[in-house]
Amino acid sequence: MSARVSVVIPTLDDYELLEAHLPLLLEEVEARGADDEVTLVDDTGADLLAAWVAERFPGRVRVMVRSENGGFARALLTGARVGTADYLLALNPDVRVRRGFLQPLVDALEAPEVFAVSPRVLLGGDPRRVETHQRMAVAEGRLRSVPLAPDPDDLAPRPIPFPLGGAMLLRRDAFVAAGGFDSLFEPFYFEDTDLGLSAWRQGLRILEVPASVVEHHHRGTIGPRVPEELVRAAIERNRLLLHWKHLDSRPAALEHLRSLHRDAFDAAMGDRREELVWLALALESLEPASASRRSVTPVVRTLAESLEASDPSR
């Protein structure tokens, strides 16, 4: 008997995306025959989806309505809490699943040391642009992700630094018990990276399952609603917070500090104000970042060891 899955899709009024992607998901879930459940979390704060879903997918999708918009992380937690299955599949409404994507994920999560799994995520459906296949590395004092080109013939699950928040399967109880993603990264971006790195540092593993494939039409939800400069500010701020949370050696901290001073001075010299804004924004969250830093326990692997262990090209 295969484990049951609670599929949770946090969403705004993404009617077109849901119209296009939800039927495929429901077909897949129902075909698996494992009594899985699908929950949409209406994060519009205005109860816009219940009637629409009831009309189009009667009896097949549960809708949870949030009284106010809380962002992806909070909405996912809302859905995860009401789920009843062992496993939680987090999906973005801009993710389009491909046939047979779910069972390989469920199979791959059986090993207890595996914290989460992600399908192979193709950006815009392009098989040459694999979003999940990347490694993370510290270069010139900064933590960066490096996209990799996977071997299309190698379908064995590979370690990856983090599960993609918009398409990941993990144990529901553990996720709920931990309070979901770290709120440090609200409203969006890098919360899934942090989840993955924290798991690796605690001695667990994250896998990409190439036999499971989905398409990600990136920023199909955020892009139309949030000005580009705010999206960029969130990305750059959270990139720094992520690094600060997981920095664990004095030499690495010194190198990082040097790079920050150098970049800040360069930005001031070149009147590149936006870079100063990102840095100032991140520094405003220094206290919560320090608190989050203390929450990563027990630490089994160092950051460097985690990055090395999670490198899919290893």
């Binding site: 106010e68 918009n69 809380g70 609603r225 949030v226 400069e229 924004l281």
Partner: peptide, 12 residues
């Protein structure tokens, strides 16, 4: 912007 993004917008 969505309410969850408002604090970020104000800070920026």
């Amino acid at each position: 912007v969505p309410a969850s993004v408002e604090p970020l917008r104000a800070r920026v």
